[in-house]
Computed example of a mutant assay.
Amino acid sequence: MDIRVQGGGPTGPFLSARDVFETEYDLEKEVCVQVRPDPDERTWTAHYDDHHLLNISTAAATSAMARELVLHEYSHMHRNEQEHPSHTQSTTEAICLAFSGRTVEQRTLTHCYQIANHMKDIYADDITLTVTPSNKLVSFLESSLASAIVNRPSTAPNTWRQLTATADPEITAVNAAFALALCERHDLVGEDHQLYDLAHAAAKDAPNVRLDAFKSQFRTLTTDPDETEYRKALVDITRRYALNTTWAAD
């Protein structure tokens, strides 16, 4: 793996993450890292014909979770190179299909894109969790969910990914379902873990969101879906969230 860091930030986390990642996986394309001075800069990855681009803030790159964050982003890059449907399927196309002929509020639409990102994160973390311990991820999920439940911005550093943009009860409940699904998918926590109590608290605040149903959909995502299967899963989960019309048939 070729890593090129620009912007005057530290190189250690990116090289360390590369060494860990290469124990099981590899990337064919060069990784170009842009370290941004803005502490509020969101970490995001773009993919091009000859390289991957990782944008990250200096605050994230120097945090205690920097290596874990970078490993997570390398996993997204690997999924892209695999042409995994979760990383090649157009989210906009699927969401337009889900809501064809219907009107959806902008707030709800934003939440649907966040749900789609959760699905991508499930597949990225299927890779990440094979090369790194889970303790930091579990701690992040727990602290982020707790912060959302008490209706204040997350105090966790912006170094993994944004679990919740606001303290909106409905999307917080779905975020809780995602957190539990990821933990159960990889047997990360026991049934008595605090995360379950937090998730149940989130569910009480959003009675129209079925926590267990969303958890099941995230947890049971097929490892190697084809494009049609993945698009159907994405359409189904976003439609269920936005329209809340299919639960009675389950």
Results as ranks from 00 to 15, higher is better:
Thr130Leu: 10
Asn117Arg: 13
Thr11Met: 09
Leu71Gln: 04
Pro153Lys: 11
Lys215Tyr: 08
Glu93Thr: 11
Pro39Asp: 05
Val131Met: 15
Ala233Arg: 08
Leu198Val: 04
Lys215Ile: 04
Pro225Thr: 08
Leu188Asp: 03
His51Gln: 13
Thr223Pro: 01
Asp187Ala: 15
Ser154Gly: 15
Asp250Leu: 14
Val104Gly: 09
Ser63Lys: 08
Ala248Asn: 12
Trp160Asp: 00
Glu22Val: 02
Tyr196Ile: 09
Val5Cys: 03
Arg79Gly: 13
Tyr48Trp: 06
Arg4Asn: 11
Glu184Arg: 13
Glu83Asn: 09
Ala98Met: 02
Val209Thr: 01
Thr155Arg: 12
Lys120Trp: 03
His118Val: 11
His72Pro: 04
Asp40Tyr: 14
Met77Lys: 03
Ser90Met: 06
Ala17Pro: 01
Asp168Thr: 10
Arg161Trp: 13
Val189Glu: 12
Ser147Ala: 15
Glu73Asp: 09
Glu105Val: 00
Glu227Phe: 05
Asn175His: 06
Leu15Pro: 01
Asp192Ile: 01
His51Arg: 12
Asp212Tyr: 09
Leu97Asp: 14
Ala148Met: 14
Lys204Phe: 01
Leu198His: 05
Leu145Lys: 04
Pro133Arg: 08
Leu15Glu: 10
Pro133Glu: 15
His52Ile: 04
Asp19Gly: 02
Thr92Asn: 07
Pro85Cys: 13
Leu71Thr: 04
Glu142Tyr: 07
Ala173Trp: 01
Gln217Leu: 13
Leu54Thr: 07
Asp40Trp: 15
Pro133Thr: 13
His200Gln: 15
Met119Asn: 05
Tyr230Ala: 07
Asp224Ala: 08
Gly8His: 03
Asp197Thr: 04
Val138Pro: 00
Thr128Gly: 06
Glu81Cys: 07
Ser147Gln: 14
Trp160Gly: 01
Pro39Ile: 09
Asp197Phe: 00
Pro207Gln: 06
Arg67Asn: 06
Cys96Tyr: 04
Trp247Gln: 04
Ala116Asp: 05
His52Asp: 10
Thr130Gly: 07
Ala148Asn: 08
Arg107Ala: 11
Ser147Thr: 15
Ser75Leu: 07
Phe14Asn: 02
Pro13Cys: 08
Ser154His: 03
Met119Gly: 00
Arg107Tyr: 13
His72Gln: 02
Val235Arg: 03
Tyr113Phe: 14
His84Gln: 08
Ile122Glu: 06
Ala213Ile: 15
Cys183Val: 09
Ser144Ile: 07
His52Thr: 06
Ala148Ser: 10
Ile122Thr: 00
Ser100Asn: 10
Ile56Leu: 13
Ser75Lys: 06
Asp49Tyr: 00
Thr62Leu: 03
Val20Asn: 04
Pro85Arg: 03
Arg36Val: 15
Ala233Ser: 15
Ala61Cys: 04
Thr91Asn: 01
Asp224Phe: 08
Cys112Gln: 14
Thr164Phe: 00
Ala64Ser: 09
Cys112Tyr: 09
Val189His: 13
Glu229Asn: 03
Glu227Gly: 09
Asp187Met: 05
Gln89Ile: 09
Cys183Tyr: 11
Ala165Phe: 04
Arg161Ile: 03
Thr103Tyr: 05
Ala165Val: 00
